[in-house]
């Protein structure tokens, strides 16, 4: 089987994989990083979003072998030890989750939005940017609130974005 190596949450990992292995499967089954979820497996829901070289990507629509040499951050790589990332903290604070299934993808997408659009996000911008993320139970109001607050706090935390990548 062909070999792939990449840096996941700061750690260099290497494995032999079946070419069919999706990036998300590689995290969940090879690395046992099960924070990244599979909601739809058809590129619609965003539960599988991770950052590849600093950009949000749906890891269910990617072959692991295609990411040789990539730098990847999954939801497990956001917190600093036991201290939650400001975006995670904002989801907790603003009740941005209920069952939590969509949350890893929501949070990774949210951090990506802040990376691209800055710390002062209008509600409308957040809603537009959540185009590719589906939540089946919380409803979007609190998620949108959490992202707005988390974005501001990332600014205050100063460099939290960089630290996460």
């Amino acid at each position: 089987m062909p070999t792939v190596s990449m840096t996941v949450n700061g750690k260099l990992v290497k494995a032999d994989v079946d070419p069919r292995t999706l990036l998300v499967q590689f995290f969940r089954e090879n690395l046992r990083l099960t924070g990244t979820h599979v909601g739809c497996d058809t590129s619609q829901c965003g539960a599988c979003v991770v950052h590849v070289n600093g950009k949000a990507v749906k890891s269910c629509t990617a072959l692991a072998l295609g990411f040789d040499g990539a730098e990847i951050t999954t939801i497990e790589g956001l917190a600093n030890g036991t201290q939650l990332h400001p975006m995670q903290e904002a989801f907790r604070e603003h009740h941005g989750l209920q069952c939590g299934f969509c949350t890893p993808g929501m949070i990774m997408t949210a951090v990506d939005i802040v990376n691209r659009k800055g710390n002062n996000l209008e509600e409308h911008t957040i809603r537009e940017e959540l185009e590719g993320n589906i939540c089946r139970c919380t409803g979007y109001h609190n998620i949108v609130k959490a992202i707005g607050a988390g974005a501001k706090n990332m600014g205050k935390a100063g460099g939290a974005t960089q630290a996460a990548e």
Partner: peptide, 9 residues
């Protein structure tokens, strides 16, 4: 086109 993650790939 699509959503932000689709546009990144």
């Amino acid at each position: 086109i699509g959503d932000p993650a689709v546009r990144h790939r």
